[in-house]
Amino acid sequence: MNIVQRIEWRLYKERKKRKLKNLTPTIIASNCNGEFIYYDMNLKFRSPTINLSFEMNDYVKMLENLEWYMKQAILPYEDERFEYPTGMLGDIEIRFNHYETLEEGIEKWEERKKRIDWNNLFIMGIDGDDCTYESLKRFDALPFKNKVIFTHKQYPEIKSAYYIPGFEDQDGIGVLLYFKKQFLVRRYLDDFDYVSFLNGK
């Protein structure tokens, strides 16, 4: 970004912050999308799902019994597919993408888990990370009031689906934190009005 773009981007985020009324949300996300909303809005991390990710079918399984899973200990588990640490939460694999060690990831998970506000939950998923259509339907059936799953094509039958253009030629949605090629500096994630979402609208 050049200087003008950096200034425009900063002002854009400042305008969004001024509109945010809910300053203590717990965003349970399947990847870094939730984390960057916390960063954008300069909010305290009130969710354990920071700097990590899940395979989407595992993630949906966790959401279907979230309180139970939040009471389970994370155990060591080496997944040779990844260079970063991984662990098991019951039968759910957690990928600690942005941690040097499993111990560090677990420490932060436990610390932030204590901050969950069960009355102020916001659930976010994607139709990537090997998400099946069955998991899309299961996500849609979850009993959470505030939930959204970002999709690479339109699913009118999935009420919680939010279609973000630009990934139609892929098997699922891509990285929403990448910037789009356009005049205004915006990420794919910014297609979604997450301020209104967090404000309960």
Rank of each mutant, 00 (worst) to 15 (best):
N57H: 00
D117S: 12
R186V: 13
I74P: 04
F122E: 01
F122S: 02
L20M: 05
V60M: 01
L23F: 07
R138A: 11
A141Y: 06
Y12H: 14
E134G: 00
I50M: 10
I164Q: 11
Y194N: 01
L198K: 04
S47D: 10
F179N: 14
F192K: 10
D191T: 06
I94D: 07
K153M: 07
Y59N: 03
F45W: 11
L11T: 07
E168C: 07
Y59F: 09
A73S: 13
E14H: 15
R112G: 04
P143F: 03
E67N: 04
M62R: 14
Y162F: 15
L136F: 01
E100R: 11
R112Q: 14
V175H: 12
N31Y: 05
K201Y: 12
V60N: 06
L142E: 00
P156G: 09
K17D: 06
A161G: 03
K113E: 03
K13S: 03
I27K: 07
Q154W: 07
K145M: 11
E67W: 02
L52K: 06
E168T: 09
D117P: 06
Y155H: 14
L184S: 15
K44S: 08
E134A: 01
N119T: 12
R46P: 03
E67A: 02
K114Q: 15
N120G: 02
I106P: 02
R186L: 12
Y133P: 06
I126S: 14
E55D: 12
Y99S: 04
E168V: 06
D130P: 08
W118A: 10
M1S: 09
R6T: 14
F167R: 08
I123A: 00
I28E: 14
D171N: 09
F139L: 04
D117Y: 03
W68D: 09
P25F: 07
L63H: 07
I164A: 12
N199C: 08
L136Q: 00
L66T: 05
K153D: 02
K13T: 08
S53N: 15
M41S: 05
E80V: 14
Y155N: 04
D129W: 12
G34W: 02
G200H: 11
Q170C: 14
G34T: 05
K201F: 11
T101S: 13
R46S: 12
M41P: 09
M124D: 08
E103Y: 04
F36I: 13
A141H: 13
Y133S: 07
Q170Y: 15
G128K: 10
Y38S: 08
L184I: 12
F54V: 01
Y194A: 01
R10L: 12
F122I: 00
Y69H: 13
T26E: 06
Y155S: 00
I116H: 03
I116N: 08
Y99L: 01
M70L: 15
G174Q: 05
E134S: 02
T26W: 07
F82D: 02
G128M: 09
F82P: 04
K19L: 14
D191P: 10
G34I: 01
P76H: 00
L43I: 01
